[in-house]
């Protein structure tokens, strides 16, 4: 059987919020390493990959690798029934067709148990190679969210140009143009407020803002976001979940016809 427990439901609620607008159905793969999920969005333009490592759970038992096929909307709805500071247990039998979600209030006076029907899903998996990127930008996640939202008012795409010391986000549209320049921080007291720009070679790529705006639903998971960019390969937008894992989004660049 599979059974795991997290001290706070909040982190799993935020993880579901980060996924449910992008993907409708997905498979949680459960192994001794933890929980993981990989899925393309319905138009196959982007890919999301989630890892929640065993070490981040209070308890984690997995007798046999299992795949939990879930409707994301349903799982998110059930997760919303947990209070942020409830502890949460997920449980499933090896050959079962149900996932139990048990929420316990911090004082132990209320326990809620929900059972969710699992689905038999055959979802295409892609091999994501480990690779070095030409540029890696780290910045406050709220700032990145704001930039994507603001540029959506101008155009459908953002052009990201990274040079030593800074990055330009620009958009063009029928009503006009916009350019937002973010400079690398020279001195920061709080790591969460820092902007760092690592450049091996300058890059200039264009991405659909529609998907970046979906990705920024993960903002509450982490104070910082990292953007890894290389010419002609998907952009990686990564949110670390403290002590537990990460949510990573991959977005194919727009290319010249």
């Amino acid at each position: 059987m599979f059974e795991c427990r997290l001290p706070k439901a909040e982190v799993l609620k935020k993880t579901m919020d980060a996924l449910k607008d992008l993907i409708k159905e997905a498979v949680w793969d459960v192994s001794a390493q933890g929980l993981s999920l990989q899925s393309m969005d319905s138009s196959h333009v982007s890919l999301v990959q989630v890892t929640l490592r065993t070490e981040g759970f209070d308890t984690f038992r997995c007798d046999k690798n299992i795949a939990l096929g879930v409707n994301m909307d349903t799982m998110q709805k059930l997760m919303k029934c947990a209070s942020n500071d409830d502890n949460i247990t997920l449980k499933s039998e090896d050959n079962g067709d149900l996932l139990s979600l048990i929420f316990e209030s911090p004082n132990g006076e209320k326990t809620s148990e929900y059972e969710m029907k699992l689905m038999d899903l055959d979802i295409e998996q892609l091999g994501i190679p480990d690779q070095e990127y030409s540029c890696t930008i780290k910045m406050p996640s709220g700032e990145f969210q704001r930039i994507c939202r603001d540029l959506s008012n101008i155009g459908e795409s953002v052009n990201i140009t990274v040079v030593k010391g800074g990055v330009d986000f620009s958009a063009k549209g029928d009503i006009g143009n916009a350019k937002i320049h973010v400079t690398e921080s020279s001195n920061v007291d709080n790591e969460k407020d820092a902007v760092t720009v690592e450049v091996n070679e300058p890059v200039n790529l264009t991405f659909a803002l529609r998907y970046l705006n979906f990705f920024t639903k993960a903002t509450p998971l982490s104070g910082q976001v990292s953007l890894s960019i290389s010419p002609d390969v998907p952009l990686v937008v990564a949110y670390e979940i403290e002590d537990l894992g990460h949510v990573k989004y991959f977005l194919a660049p727009k290319i010249e016809n």
Binding site: H44, L47, L126, P234, A252, K254, N257
Partner: peptide, 14 residues
Amino acid sequence: PKHQPSISSFFMKT
């Protein structure tokens, strides 16, 4: 004009 390729064209199917 630019076009939007599929993400699956960048990664190997497993």
